[in-house]
Design a protein around this nucleic acid. Structure first.
Length: 114
DNA sequence: TTAGTGACTGTAG
DNA sequence: GCTACAGCCACTA
């Protein structure tokens, strides 16, 4: 039964990340809060990292830390892949940080539908 | 079972 | 604003 709970948590992370609309971003802590574990923000990053290795498409580039820093970029196949994807969506990146973070931050108010 | 590790966050100095 | 420390949860060996 342990494995089922683990899979549910990871699956929930993927479900939330997939809900992030084009041109928007959110934070690890926000996702963890939605899953009922605000302190488990690190696990969100863990799940995203696992998703990349599983070759499953997850818009992980739309997930950053609370400062808007692209702390996970080094886990992408290419170091600049994350910032390139974000900029292609109209998000301004400067020095591995989202300049207009406050504008593109996605607050999943419709998360109840998940 | 235990210890180590990590894409985080909050608090204190 | 930056750095250091502690707390938190899940995975791996």
């Amino acid at each position: 039964m342990k494995a089922d709970n683990i899979n549910n948590f990871f699956n929930d992370v993927y479900a939330v990340v997939k809900q992030i609309p084009y041109g928007k971003v959110t934070t690890y802590g926000y996702i963890a809060t939605l899953l009922g574990k605000p302190q488990a923000a690190r696990i969100v990053g863990w799940a995203l990292n696992a998703s990349i290795q599983n070759s499953e498409y997850i818009p992980a580039h739309r997930v950053v830390n609370r400062k808007g820093l692209l702390t996970g970029k080094k886990y992408f196949p290419e170091i600049n892949m994350m910032s390139e994807l974000l900029q292609s969506e109209g998000i301004i990146i400067e020095d591995n940080k989202i300049v207009n973070f406050n504008e593109v931050l996605w607050t999943p108010t419709s998360i109840n539908e998940i």
